[in-house]
Simulated assay, not measured.
Amino acid sequence: MTDLGKLGFGTWAMGGPYSFDGEPVGWGPSDDAESVRALRRALDLGVTLFDTADTYGCGHSETLVGQAFAGVRDQVVIATKWGFTFDAETRRMTGTDGSVGHLRRAVEGSLRRLGTDRIDLYQLHIGDLPLDQAALLRDECEALVAQGKIRSYGWSTDDPERARFFTEKPHGIAAQADVNVLFDNPEMYAGEYAVLCRRPLAMGLLARETFDVLPADDVRVTNPAWLRFFVDGRPSPEYFRAREAVRDVLTSGGRTLVQGALAWFWARSPRLVPIPGVRTVAQVEENAAALRFGPLTPDELAQVESVLR
Results as ranks from 00 to 15, higher is better:
Phe50Ala: 05
Lys81Ala: 11
Val36Asn: 06
Gly66His: 03
Ile78Pro: 07
Val25Ala: 14
Thr48Lys: 15
Ala42Thr: 05
Val76Phe: 00
Ala42Phe: 03
Ala42Tyr: 06
Asp32His: 12
Ser30Cys: 08
His60Val: 06
Phe50Gly: 02
Ala38Gly: 07
Ser35Ala: 15
Thr63Gln: 15
Ala33Thr: 13
Gly71Leu: 10
Asp44Met: 10
Gly26Thr: 06
Asp74Arg: 09
Ser35Phe: 03
Val72Tyr: 11
Phe50Lys: 00
Val77Tyr: 06
Glu62Ala: 07
Val36Thr: 06
Glu34Phe: 01
Val72Leu: 13
Gly28Asn: 04
Ser35Thr: 09
Val72Pro: 09
Tyr56Gln: 00
Asp51Lys: 09
Val77Gly: 08
Val65Gln: 00
Asp74Phe: 06
Leu39Ile: 01
Asp21Trp: 10
Arg41Lys: 15
Lys81Trp: 07
Leu39Thr: 04
Thr63Asp: 14
Val76Met: 05
Gly46Leu: 04
Cys58Ser: 14
Asp54Gln: 13
Glu62Trp: 01
Leu49Ala: 07
Glu62Phe: 02
Val47Asp: 12
Ile78Cys: 08
Leu45Gln: 05
Ser61Asp: 01
Ser61Phe: 00
Arg41Tyr: 09
Lys81Ile: 08
Gly22Met: 14
Cys58Ala: 14
Arg73Ile: 08
Asp54Thr: 04
Ala38Val: 02
Thr55Pro: 09
His60Gln: 15
Ala53Pro: 10
Asp31Ala: 09
Thr55Trp: 11
Val65Met: 02
Val25Pro: 07
Gly26Met: 04
Ala38Cys: 07
Gly71Val: 06
Ala68His: 03
Ala68Asp: 11
Tyr56Lys: 01
Tyr56Asp: 01
Val65Asn: 02
Pro24Trp: 06
Ala42Gly: 15
Pro24Gln: 12
Arg37His: 09
Pro29His: 14
Ala53Met: 14
Val36Pro: 00
Leu43His: 10
Leu49Trp: 10
Phe50Ser: 06
Ala42Gln: 09
Arg41His: 11
Thr55His: 14
Ile78Arg: 07
Leu64Arg: 03
Gly46Thr: 05
Tyr56Val: 03
Gln75Cys: 12
Pro29Gly: 12
Leu39Ser: 03
Gly22His: 13
Val25Lys: 11
Gln67Asn: 13
Pro29Cys: 13
Ala79Thr: 10
Ser30Glu: 02
Asp44His: 11
Thr63Trp: 03
Val65Trp: 00
Leu39Pro: 02
Leu64Gln: 08
Asp54His: 12
Gly71Tyr: 04
Arg41Glu: 15
Gly59His: 05
Gly57His: 02
Thr52Leu: 02
Ala38Glu: 02
Gly59Leu: 06
Gly57Cys: 09
Asp32Ser: 11
Val77Cys: 12
Leu64Val: 08
Ser35Trp: 02
Gly28Asp: 07
Ala68Ser: 06
Gly57Ile: 02
Gly66Ser: 05
Gln75Tyr: 08
Pro29Met: 14
Tyr56Ser: 00
Val72Trp: 11
Gly66Asn: 04
Ala38Ser: 09
Leu45Asn: 08
Ala53Arg: 05
Val77Asp: 05
Val76Pro: 01
Val36Leu: 07
Ser35Arg: 01
Gly26Trp: 02
Cys58Thr: 13
Thr52Gln: 01
Asp21Gly: 13
Pro24Gly: 14
Gly57Thr: 05
Val47Ile: 11
Glu62His: 01
Val76Trp: 00
Ser30Leu: 02
Val76Ile: 08
Phe69Ser: 04
Glu62Cys: 07
Ser30Val: 06
Cys58Ile: 05
Gly46Asp: 03
Val76Gly: 00
